[in-house]
Design a protein around this nucleic acid. Structure first.
Lengths: 185, 185
DNA sequence: GGACACATGTAATCGGTTACATGATTAC
DNA sequence: GTAATCATGTAACCGATTACATGTGTCC
Protein backbone atom coordinates (compact mmCIF):
# COMPACT_ATOMS: atom_id res chain seq x y z
CA UNK A 1 0.00 0.00 0.00
CA UNK A 2 1.38 3.34 -1.03
CA UNK A 3 1.13 6.62 0.83
CA UNK A 4 -1.20 7.78 -1.94
CA UNK A 5 -3.71 5.03 -1.16
CA UNK A 6 -3.29 5.62 2.53
CA UNK A 7 -4.32 9.25 2.09
CA UNK A 8 -7.37 8.24 0.08
CA UNK A 9 -8.27 5.61 2.68
CA UNK A 10 -8.20 8.11 5.50
CA UNK A 11 -9.90 10.87 3.54
CA UNK A 12 -12.74 8.54 2.62
CA UNK A 13 -13.73 8.74 6.30
CA UNK A 14 -13.80 12.52 6.18
CA UNK A 15 -11.75 15.65 5.63
CA UNK A 16 -8.28 15.91 7.08
CA UNK A 17 -5.04 17.85 6.96
CA UNK A 18 -1.65 16.34 6.16
CA UNK A 19 -0.77 16.60 9.80
CA UNK A 20 -3.85 14.66 10.85
CA UNK A 21 -3.28 11.98 8.23
CA UNK A 22 0.12 11.37 9.65
CA UNK A 23 -1.27 10.97 13.15
CA UNK A 24 -3.91 8.52 11.97
CA UNK A 25 -1.26 6.48 10.18
CA UNK A 26 1.09 6.16 13.13
CA UNK A 27 -1.53 5.67 15.84
CA UNK A 28 -5.21 4.84 15.69
CA UNK A 29 -7.25 2.93 13.20
CA UNK A 30 -4.79 2.91 10.33
CA UNK A 31 -1.69 1.90 12.22
CA UNK A 32 -1.76 -1.60 10.79
CA UNK A 33 -1.73 -0.51 7.20
CA UNK A 34 1.12 1.88 6.73
CA UNK A 35 3.33 4.29 8.60
CA UNK A 36 3.98 7.48 6.72
CA UNK A 37 6.14 10.50 7.39
CA UNK A 38 5.53 14.13 6.48
CA UNK A 39 8.12 13.89 3.76
CA UNK A 40 5.93 11.43 1.90
CA UNK A 41 2.45 12.67 2.83
CA UNK A 42 2.71 16.28 1.69
CA UNK A 43 4.03 15.47 -1.80
CA UNK A 44 1.43 12.69 -2.11
CA UNK A 45 -1.44 15.06 -1.28
CA UNK A 46 -0.15 17.60 -3.77
CA UNK A 47 -0.09 15.00 -6.50
CA UNK A 48 -3.53 13.67 -5.59
CA UNK A 49 -4.85 17.18 -5.98
CA UNK A 50 -3.37 17.74 -9.44
CA UNK A 51 -4.84 14.35 -10.39
CA UNK A 52 -8.29 15.49 -9.25
CA UNK A 53 -8.66 12.77 -6.63
CA UNK A 54 -8.86 15.22 -3.74
CA UNK A 55 -9.69 18.89 -3.24
CA UNK A 56 -8.07 21.41 -0.91
CA UNK A 57 -9.47 24.21 1.15
CA UNK A 58 -7.29 26.62 3.10
CA UNK A 59 -8.39 27.48 6.58
CA UNK A 60 -7.12 30.71 8.10
CA UNK A 61 -7.93 30.99 11.77
CA UNK A 62 -6.50 34.02 13.53
CA UNK A 63 -3.57 33.13 15.66
CA UNK A 64 -3.36 29.60 14.29
CA UNK A 65 -1.17 28.35 11.48
CA UNK A 66 -2.86 27.99 8.10
CA UNK A 67 -4.32 24.53 7.64
CA UNK A 68 -4.88 22.88 4.31
CA UNK A 69 -7.96 20.71 4.64
CA UNK A 70 -8.21 17.96 2.05
CA UNK A 71 -11.38 16.18 0.92
CA UNK A 72 -11.79 13.17 -1.34
CA UNK A 73 -13.64 13.52 -4.66
CA UNK A 74 -15.87 10.96 -6.39
CA UNK A 75 -13.01 10.11 -8.73
CA UNK A 76 -10.86 9.61 -5.64
CA UNK A 77 -13.34 7.21 -4.07
CA UNK A 78 -13.56 5.23 -7.26
CA UNK A 79 -9.79 5.00 -7.60
CA UNK A 80 -9.47 3.92 -3.98
CA UNK A 81 -12.01 1.09 -4.28
CA UNK A 82 -10.25 -0.10 -7.43
CA UNK A 83 -6.92 -0.28 -5.63
CA UNK A 84 -8.60 -2.02 -2.72
CA UNK A 85 -10.18 -4.84 -4.68
CA UNK A 86 -7.34 -5.72 -7.02
CA UNK A 87 -5.17 -8.73 -6.03
CA UNK A 88 -4.28 -8.32 -2.39
CA UNK A 89 -0.71 -8.40 -1.21
CA UNK A 90 -0.35 -10.96 1.58
CA UNK A 91 -0.47 -9.79 5.18
CA UNK A 92 2.94 -9.56 6.74
CA UNK A 93 4.19 -9.70 10.26
CA UNK A 94 7.69 -8.32 10.74
CA UNK A 95 9.06 -9.03 14.17
CA UNK A 96 12.39 -7.69 15.38
CA UNK A 97 11.42 -9.26 18.70
CA UNK A 98 11.22 -12.78 17.27
CA UNK A 99 14.56 -12.20 15.61
CA UNK A 100 16.18 -11.51 18.96
CA UNK A 101 14.35 -14.51 20.40
CA UNK A 102 15.73 -16.72 17.65
CA UNK A 103 19.23 -15.83 18.82
CA UNK A 104 18.43 -16.07 22.53
CA UNK A 105 21.46 -18.22 23.28
CA UNK A 106 23.81 -15.72 21.68
CA UNK A 107 22.47 -12.53 23.17
CA UNK A 108 22.03 -13.81 26.71
CA UNK A 109 19.39 -13.43 29.44
CA UNK A 110 19.73 -9.69 30.10
CA UNK A 111 19.11 -8.71 26.50
CA UNK A 112 16.26 -11.23 26.22
CA UNK A 113 14.66 -9.98 29.38
CA UNK A 114 14.78 -6.42 28.05
CA UNK A 115 13.40 -7.50 24.68
CA UNK A 116 10.47 -9.32 26.30
CA UNK A 117 9.66 -6.32 28.46
CA UNK A 118 9.79 -3.98 25.44
CA UNK A 119 7.51 -6.24 23.49
CA UNK A 120 5.07 -6.49 26.40
CA UNK A 121 4.87 -2.71 26.60
CA UNK A 122 4.42 -2.40 22.84
CA UNK A 123 1.50 -4.80 22.78
CA UNK A 124 -0.05 -3.19 25.86
CA UNK A 125 0.16 0.26 24.24
CA UNK A 126 -1.43 -0.87 20.99
CA UNK A 127 -4.11 -2.62 22.96
CA UNK A 128 -4.79 0.48 25.04
CA UNK A 129 -5.12 2.72 22.01
CA UNK A 130 -7.56 0.26 20.44
CA UNK A 131 -9.74 -0.19 23.51
CA UNK A 132 -9.84 3.22 25.17
CA UNK A 133 -10.44 5.37 22.21
CA UNK A 134 -13.69 4.16 20.73
CA UNK A 135 -15.53 1.28 22.30
CA UNK A 136 -18.23 0.69 19.73
CA UNK A 137 -18.51 3.25 17.01
CA UNK A 138 -21.33 3.35 14.52
CA UNK A 139 -19.10 2.11 11.73
CA UNK A 140 -19.44 -1.66 11.41
CA UNK A 141 -16.19 -2.20 9.49
CA UNK A 142 -14.23 -0.29 12.11
CA UNK A 143 -15.76 -2.34 14.90
CA UNK A 144 -15.00 -5.63 13.21
CA UNK A 145 -11.39 -4.79 12.45
CA UNK A 146 -10.84 -3.28 15.88
CA UNK A 147 -12.17 -6.40 17.57
CA UNK A 148 -9.98 -8.55 15.36
CA UNK A 149 -6.96 -6.52 16.36
CA UNK A 150 -7.82 -6.65 20.04
CA UNK A 151 -8.37 -10.40 19.95
CA UNK A 152 -5.04 -11.13 18.23
CA UNK A 153 -3.06 -8.79 20.43
CA UNK A 154 -4.61 -10.11 23.61
CA UNK A 155 -3.72 -13.63 22.56
CA UNK A 156 -0.23 -12.47 21.71
CA UNK A 157 0.26 -10.83 25.07
CA UNK A 158 -1.00 -13.84 27.02
CA UNK A 159 1.17 -16.20 25.02
CA UNK A 160 4.20 -14.00 25.54
CA UNK A 161 3.62 -13.80 29.29
CA UNK A 162 3.12 -17.52 29.71
CA UNK A 163 6.16 -18.46 27.61
CA UNK A 164 8.59 -15.74 28.64
CA UNK A 165 10.19 -17.94 31.27
CA UNK A 166 10.92 -20.67 28.75
CA UNK A 167 12.68 -18.20 26.50
CA UNK A 168 14.69 -16.82 29.39
CA UNK A 169 15.81 -20.34 30.22
CA UNK A 170 17.05 -20.81 26.69
CA UNK A 171 19.01 -17.57 26.98
CA UNK A 172 20.43 -18.66 30.34
CA UNK A 173 21.31 -22.11 29.07
CA UNK A 174 24.26 -21.41 26.84
CA UNK A 175 25.31 -17.93 27.79
CA UNK A 176 26.46 -17.98 31.39
CA UNK A 177 26.91 -14.53 32.77
CA UNK A 178 28.30 -15.71 36.10
CA UNK A 179 32.06 -16.46 36.21
CA UNK A 180 31.40 -19.04 38.92
CA UNK A 181 29.25 -21.09 36.58
CA UNK A 182 31.77 -20.70 33.80
CA UNK A 183 34.53 -21.89 36.11
CA UNK A 184 32.50 -24.90 37.22
CA UNK A 185 32.11 -26.16 33.68
CA UNK B 1 16.16 -4.69 9.49
CA UNK B 2 18.32 -4.30 6.46
CA UNK B 3 19.21 -6.90 3.87
CA UNK B 4 22.75 -6.76 5.20
CA UNK B 5 21.64 -7.89 8.65
CA UNK B 6 19.36 -10.46 7.13
CA UNK B 7 22.31 -12.03 5.30
CA UNK B 8 24.37 -12.12 8.49
CA UNK B 9 21.42 -13.60 10.40
CA UNK B 10 21.03 -16.44 7.92
CA UNK B 11 24.75 -17.03 7.50
CA UNK B 12 25.17 -17.31 11.26
CA UNK B 13 23.25 -20.59 10.97
CA UNK B 14 25.66 -21.85 8.32
CA UNK B 15 27.04 -21.31 4.85
CA UNK B 16 24.74 -20.31 2.04
CA UNK B 17 24.61 -18.90 -1.47
CA UNK B 18 22.77 -15.73 -2.44
CA UNK B 19 20.13 -17.86 -4.03
CA UNK B 20 19.57 -19.84 -0.85
CA UNK B 21 19.44 -16.70 1.29
CA UNK B 22 16.66 -15.42 -0.85
CA UNK B 23 14.69 -18.62 -0.43
CA UNK B 24 15.11 -18.54 3.34
CA UNK B 25 13.92 -14.96 3.45
CA UNK B 26 10.73 -15.50 1.47
CA UNK B 27 9.77 -18.86 2.96
CA UNK B 28 10.95 -20.71 6.03
CA UNK B 29 12.33 -19.53 9.30
CA UNK B 30 13.19 -15.99 8.30
CA UNK B 31 9.98 -15.09 6.56
CA UNK B 32 8.83 -12.91 9.41
CA UNK B 33 11.88 -10.71 9.42
CA UNK B 34 12.38 -9.44 5.93
CA UNK B 35 11.66 -10.26 2.31
CA UNK B 36 14.58 -9.63 0.03
CA UNK B 37 15.05 -9.84 -3.71
CA UNK B 38 18.16 -10.79 -5.70
CA UNK B 39 18.71 -7.20 -6.62
CA UNK B 40 19.38 -6.37 -2.99
CA UNK B 41 21.00 -9.60 -1.79
CA UNK B 42 23.86 -9.86 -4.27
CA UNK B 43 25.12 -6.30 -3.78
CA UNK B 44 24.73 -6.71 0.00
CA UNK B 45 26.85 -9.87 0.01
CA UNK B 46 29.51 -8.19 -2.11
CA UNK B 47 29.71 -5.31 0.33
CA UNK B 48 29.79 -7.62 3.34
CA UNK B 49 32.75 -9.35 1.78
CA UNK B 50 34.76 -6.18 1.18
CA UNK B 51 33.96 -5.23 4.79
CA UNK B 52 35.39 -8.54 5.98
CA UNK B 53 32.16 -9.71 7.60
CA UNK B 54 31.80 -12.73 5.33
CA UNK B 55 34.05 -14.86 3.14
CA UNK B 56 33.33 -16.40 -0.26
CA UNK B 57 34.27 -19.71 -1.79
CA UNK B 58 33.49 -20.57 -5.39
CA UNK B 59 32.14 -24.02 -6.08
CA UNK B 60 32.51 -25.43 -9.57
CA UNK B 61 30.59 -28.62 -10.04
CA UNK B 62 30.60 -30.07 -13.51
CA UNK B 63 27.35 -29.49 -15.28
CA UNK B 64 26.08 -27.14 -12.60
CA UNK B 65 26.30 -23.36 -12.56
CA UNK B 66 29.05 -21.87 -10.43
CA UNK B 67 27.90 -21.24 -6.87
CA UNK B 68 29.36 -18.65 -4.56
CA UNK B 69 29.14 -20.02 -1.07
CA UNK B 70 29.31 -17.38 1.65
CA UNK B 71 30.35 -17.92 5.27
CA UNK B 72 30.21 -15.52 8.20
CA UNK B 73 33.44 -14.41 9.90
CA UNK B 74 33.99 -13.66 13.60
CA UNK B 75 33.80 -9.94 12.83
CA UNK B 76 30.50 -10.64 11.09
CA UNK B 77 29.07 -12.45 14.10
CA UNK B 78 30.11 -9.61 16.35
CA UNK B 79 28.57 -7.00 14.11
CA UNK B 80 25.36 -9.00 13.86
CA UNK B 81 24.94 -9.34 17.62
CA UNK B 82 25.58 -5.63 18.03
CA UNK B 83 22.82 -4.81 15.55
CA UNK B 84 20.54 -7.30 17.26
CA UNK B 85 20.83 -5.88 20.76
CA UNK B 86 20.61 -2.18 20.01
CA UNK B 87 17.17 -0.51 20.48
CA UNK B 88 14.59 -2.71 18.82
CA UNK B 89 12.22 -1.35 16.22
CA UNK B 90 8.65 -2.23 17.19
CA UNK B 91 7.02 -5.28 15.65
CA UNK B 92 4.64 -4.42 12.88
CA UNK B 93 1.67 -6.13 11.39
CA UNK B 94 0.67 -4.82 7.98
CA UNK B 95 -2.64 -6.19 6.82
CA UNK B 96 -4.09 -5.50 3.39
CA UNK B 97 -6.81 -7.91 4.44
CA UNK B 98 -7.92 -5.79 7.40
CA UNK B 99 -7.91 -2.77 5.12
CA UNK B 100 -10.43 -4.42 2.82
CA UNK B 101 -12.42 -5.52 5.87
CA UNK B 102 -12.54 -1.94 7.12
CA UNK B 103 -14.29 -0.95 3.89
CA UNK B 104 -16.55 -4.02 3.81
CA UNK B 105 -19.67 -1.96 3.16
CA UNK B 106 -18.10 -0.25 0.16
CA UNK B 107 -16.56 -3.26 -1.55
CA UNK B 108 -19.53 -5.59 -1.11
CA UNK B 109 -19.97 -9.29 -0.20
CA UNK B 110 -18.29 -10.85 -3.25
CA UNK B 111 -15.01 -9.00 -2.76
CA UNK B 112 -15.12 -9.66 1.00
CA UNK B 113 -15.77 -13.32 0.47
CA UNK B 114 -12.78 -13.54 -1.85
CA UNK B 115 -10.58 -11.59 0.55
CA UNK B 116 -11.50 -13.90 3.46
CA UNK B 117 -10.77 -16.97 1.39
CA UNK B 118 -7.39 -15.55 0.29
CA UNK B 119 -6.48 -14.76 3.84
CA UNK B 120 -7.50 -18.23 5.02
CA UNK B 121 -5.26 -19.82 2.42
CA UNK B 122 -2.38 -17.51 3.29
CA UNK B 123 -2.51 -18.41 6.97
CA UNK B 124 -2.91 -22.10 6.19
CA UNK B 125 0.16 -22.01 3.94
CA UNK B 126 2.32 -20.27 6.50
CA UNK B 127 1.11 -22.70 9.12
CA UNK B 128 1.91 -25.68 6.91
CA UNK B 129 5.42 -24.50 6.17
CA UNK B 130 6.05 -23.99 9.89
CA UNK B 131 4.67 -27.35 11.03
CA UNK B 132 5.66 -29.78 8.29
CA UNK B 133 9.21 -28.80 7.76
CA UNK B 134 10.87 -29.25 11.11
CA UNK B 135 8.87 -30.45 14.04
CA UNK B 136 11.41 -30.07 16.83
CA UNK B 137 14.91 -29.20 15.78
CA UNK B 138 17.86 -29.17 18.13
CA UNK B 139 17.98 -25.39 18.13
CA UNK B 140 16.06 -24.06 21.12
CA UNK B 141 15.60 -20.53 19.74
CA UNK B 142 14.15 -21.88 16.51
CA UNK B 143 11.72 -24.08 18.40
CA UNK B 144 10.53 -21.29 20.62
CA UNK B 145 9.96 -18.84 17.78
CA UNK B 146 8.36 -21.48 15.58
CA UNK B 147 5.94 -22.41 18.33
CA UNK B 148 5.14 -18.75 18.90
CA UNK B 149 4.39 -18.34 15.21
CA UNK B 150 2.23 -21.46 15.09
CA UNK B 151 0.25 -20.40 18.16
CA UNK B 152 -0.49 -16.91 16.83
CA UNK B 153 -1.39 -18.09 13.36
CA UNK B 154 -3.63 -20.84 14.66
CA UNK B 155 -5.46 -18.34 16.80
CA UNK B 156 -5.72 -16.00 13.84
CA UNK B 157 -7.16 -18.70 11.62
CA UNK B 158 -9.74 -19.79 14.19
CA UNK B 159 -10.79 -16.22 14.85
CA UNK B 160 -11.11 -15.52 11.15
CA UNK B 161 -13.22 -18.61 10.60
CA UNK B 162 -15.56 -17.93 13.49
CA UNK B 163 -16.05 -14.25 12.59
CA UNK B 164 -16.14 -14.47 8.80
CA UNK B 165 -19.92 -14.61 8.74
CA UNK B 166 -20.23 -11.41 10.75
CA UNK B 167 -17.98 -9.59 8.30
CA UNK B 168 -19.96 -10.93 5.36
CA UNK B 169 -23.12 -9.62 6.95
CA UNK B 170 -21.59 -6.18 7.23
CA UNK B 171 -20.67 -6.32 3.55
CA UNK B 172 -24.20 -7.46 2.67
CA UNK B 173 -25.81 -4.83 4.84
CA UNK B 174 -25.19 -1.69 2.84
CA UNK B 175 -24.21 -3.00 -0.52
CA UNK B 176 -27.17 -5.02 -1.77
CA UNK B 177 -26.30 -7.10 -4.77
CA UNK B 178 -29.86 -8.33 -5.32
CA UNK B 179 -32.18 -5.94 -7.22
CA UNK B 180 -35.15 -7.41 -5.32
CA UNK B 181 -33.75 -6.24 -2.01
CA UNK B 182 -32.90 -2.84 -3.44
CA UNK B 183 -36.43 -2.49 -4.77
CA UNK B 184 -37.97 -3.47 -1.42
CA UNK B 185 -36.18 -0.63 0.37
C1' DG C 1 12.09 30.12 29.61
C1' DG C 2 11.48 25.64 27.68
C1' DA C 3 9.11 21.82 25.97
C1' DC C 4 5.49 20.18 23.28
C1' DA C 5 1.61 20.09 19.94
C1' DC C 6 0.15 22.22 15.76
C1' DA C 7 1.27 23.01 10.87
C1' DT C 8 3.64 22.87 6.06
C1' DG C 9 7.02 22.05 3.10
C1' DT C 10 11.86 20.89 0.47
C1' DA C 11 16.28 18.48 -0.64
C1' DA C 12 19.66 15.02 -0.07
C1' DT C 13 20.06 10.56 0.31
C1' DC C 14 19.22 5.70 0.54
C1' DG C 15 17.46 1.31 0.29
C1' DG C 16 15.17 -1.57 -2.29
C1' DT C 17 12.33 -3.36 -6.40
C1' DT C 18 11.77 -4.40 -11.25
C1' DA C 19 13.31 -5.46 -15.36
C1' DC C 20 17.00 -6.81 -17.96
C1' DA C 21 20.85 -10.06 -19.36
C1' DT C 22 22.53 -14.92 -19.40
C1' DG C 23 22.72 -19.72 -19.17
C1' DA C 24 22.69 -24.86 -17.64
C1' DT C 25 19.84 -28.89 -15.94
C1' DT C 26 15.94 -31.52 -14.94
C1' DA C 27 11.25 -33.06 -15.17
C1' DC C 28 6.90 -33.31 -17.67
C1' DG D 1 9.63 -28.44 -26.60
C1' DT D 2 8.75 -26.00 -22.65
C1' DA D 3 8.33 -24.96 -18.01
C1' DA D 4 10.54 -24.90 -13.63
C1' DT D 5 14.58 -24.70 -10.67
C1' DC D 6 19.17 -23.42 -9.99
C1' DA D 7 22.42 -19.52 -10.29
C1' DT D 8 24.59 -14.66 -10.60
C1' DG D 9 24.65 -10.18 -11.55
C1' DT D 10 23.62 -4.94 -13.31
C1' DA D 11 21.03 -0.61 -14.21
C1' DA D 12 17.11 2.26 -14.15
C1' DC D 13 13.95 3.78 -11.33
C1' DC D 14 11.08 4.84 -7.35
C1' DG D 15 9.31 5.52 -3.05
C1' DA D 16 10.14 6.82 1.25
C1' DT D 17 13.04 8.52 5.22
C1' DT D 18 15.88 11.98 7.39
C1' DA D 19 17.27 16.23 8.14
C1' DC D 20 16.54 20.80 7.32
C1' DA D 21 13.84 25.22 7.39
C1' DT D 22 10.15 28.04 9.64
C1' DG D 23 6.70 29.67 12.63
C1' DT D 24 2.65 30.02 16.33
C1' DG D 25 0.16 28.86 20.59
C1' DT D 26 -0.23 26.67 24.95
C1' DC D 27 0.94 24.54 29.09
C1' DC D 28 4.15 23.88 32.98
Amino acid sequence: MSVRSLCLAILSFGEATGYEIRKESTTGRFSYFEDASFGSIYPALARLETDGLVTVREEHKDGKPTRKVYAITDAGREKFLEDLIEPQAPDSFKSPFLLVALYAEQVGPEAISKAIENRRIQIQNSLDSLTIHNTQSSHAGSNWTREYGIACMTFNLNYLESHAEALLNIARGAHSTSPAVAAAE
